[in-house]
Nucleic acid binder design. Structure first.
Lengths: 349, 349
DNA sequence: TTGGTCTCCGTAAACGTTTACGGAACTATG
DNA sequence: CATAGTTCCGTAAACGTTTACGGAGACCAA
């Protein structure tokens, strides 16, 4: 005898009552409930997930989809871990569990998603690495699967998403650099179709235009969003006839490689070129410390969770005013990598 | 009408036959099977996971357990993603899915594990961040849940584990440094109870003893295995009356902070102090490039998967000689951070 | 024809839950 | 005492699969 039957037999009551007691139904005597909970604790009973979700059509699981393989991840692993922590802080209140759905680098993400959905694996999904054209979004929307994406796409009109405020980052950084006399500013973007590249570069272009400047094509650098990519960008940048005096790095992990690429040519950030990037745990430990844009990833995770839950009938009453389409602001952390003026008047050592 | 019934109705055959056809049973006409598969494809039918696992008592899911929250992860971003990729390469052959079970930083790992197991969530588990005394291992062993750990503990006697070869790393590094004239060598270890700290330091001590040297307590540095920890270690190390001439860093991500801590005091790796660490994607992009120990994480993932499957009755015939207790060798990558001799004769610039 | 073997398929039970339904015991009300 | 209402609990169906079992038909040999 196993499962709830064992518990019922042990208490000499029916399985229906046991189930009601455990699920907090009102129509059960409080004394009985106490006994049931006690016995469940003692016998280590936990409801079988398959049985429960088969009956209820619900799993209490939310999936965070991500692709394995190392080549294309521009985020550090602390990035996701921090986001997860925020997500779980919300989910814990509703007894939801978060699992990371790992799509192999050899499988198409849409195929993988199809499998996950058809199996009835999760009650809701969080998608990351949103592409500019992302078929996953239409797929989920058509089927009424609750989801939220981290990152915008062109095909998610009216769908819930949250994103980092790359426009704000571009605007602030460009304004700041221009105010310090920079006229030729290099910008980076991922090599692939990630939407953030388009968003970021477009806004850089607009921000420059507002100052009467144009963003030349040769100053837009594409690379894999990792250390090697940053290194390559530095090398290419230094080859230019008319070198930029500043660089704006949109990805987290490329700064180290970028620094090294500069360093090998004797070019020092903050003295010979202004560099502004994205925060990551090592940003302060570069020489010189990187001036960068940071955000609270935990808060982002909390917002993601709330946004998702606000689209699910079961939970939406708790989150009446969750954000559905919003960019998450980033804060500028002053390091020493952008501290100089083009007119020769260094603002700091 | 949903699920397999819909498919059966559509084909005008019984659900039993449909199920047999889909599951590759022999007692079904090949023509019928073809029709079933075709219709399944057309209607986008995928078996419901809950129904299936309720009946079979099996989920076809393997869980990789990890804890969220950023403070204590000593691995770089790509570490787990690379391992996952290897694991999945094996699992794909057996139609197993890998998911990451994310234990919130607020929940005890043993409690979380208990929930996962009792719910019947996964057919097998991979545990990481193994602690010296790890109650999770006994729990799984008692219950006959297939598992393998990445990292040894003291309580896993006879249980399947794989680990990095920290002994080999210690031996090679110490021998190398001693051969170059170093006598005072600092070593690091994580701040917590992670077993690798014990293993590594013990072997360093033995290796030094073989050269007639002792490892003084003041040369053993504990820290959180992240950038900040590395920085702190550098600061402490530089305060010592009798400074070590070399440092051996056992964690991946501490090198950046360590470099910075040295740099602020005008101490340069490879010139003023020999530094040997662990490979991570940025190791080559430090100045000077870090001499470090590297391994194929993908291969490690493959081995982990094979080890796990070799303990599961359903699959073990395919992996008759998988490793069950083995350390995974690391290769020394020569950078420029350890390139000098104590006697003043620098081996390179 | 009879009996045996094979191939293929339908039937129904089982997995562990949740929950609609109905009923027994009790309480309150007139 | 009769009736209605309340509280609590047991019964059984349902969720979507897989699979043991048995049977129908085809084929073959005697």
């Amino acid at each position: 005898m196993k499962g709830i039957r064992r518990l019922a037999q042990h208490l000499d009551i029916s399985i229906g009552t046991v189930s009601r007691a455990l699920n907090g139904r009102p129509d059960v005597n409080e004394e009985t409930r106490r006994r049931v909970l006690e016995a469940a604790e003692k016998l280590g009973y936990v409801p079988n997930q398959s049985g429960r979700s088969l009956r209820q059509g619900t799993t209490n699981i939310i999936g965070f989809m991500m692709q394995t393989g190392t080549e294309i991840t521009g985020q550090g692993d602390t990035f996701f871990m921090s986001v997860f922590d925020g997500v779980q802080a919300v989910f814990a209140k509703h007894k939801l569990d978060l699992v990371a759905l790992l799509c192999s680098s050899e499988e198409d993400q849409s195929d993988y998603l199809r499998r996950v959905v058809a199996r009835g694996f999760a009650d809701g999904l969080i998608l990351s690495a949103t592409q500019r054209h992302d078929p996953r979004i239409e797929y989920l929307a058509e089927r009424n699967i609750p989801f939220v994406t981290l990152g915008r796409s062109l095909t998610d009109v009216g769908r819930p998403w949250l994103d980092l405020d790359f426009e704000g980052m571009a605007q602030i950084a460009i304004d700041r650099l221009v105010a310090r006399g920079h006229r030729r500013i290099a910008v980076t973007r991922p090599h692939d179709d990630a939407n953030l590249g388009y968003i970021f570069v477009d806004r850089c272009r607009e921000a420059l235009a507002a100052h009467g400047l144009t963003l030349e094509e040769e100053l837009i650098f594409r690379s894999t969003p990792n250390e090697t990519g940053g290194y390559q960008i530095a090398r290419e940048l230094l080859k230019l006839e008319d070198r930029p005096t500043a660089a704006l790095l949109v990805n987290e992990t490329i700064a180290i490689g970028f620094y090294q690429g500069l360093s090998e040519a004797g070019v020092r950030p903050g003295r010979d070129i202004a560099v502004i990037g994205r925060y990551s745990p090592h940003a302060h430990f570069l020489s010189p410390p990187l001036t960068c844009f940071r955000l609270s990833l935990r808060d982002l995770g909390i917002a993601l969770a709330e946004t998702l839950l606000s689209t699910m009938p079961t939970f939406q009453e708790h989150y009446p005013q969750a954000l559905t389409n919003a960019v998450w602001p980033m804060e500028l952390i002053e390091g020493e990598s952008d501290g100089f003026r083009v007119n020769g008047d260094e603002s700091r050592g």
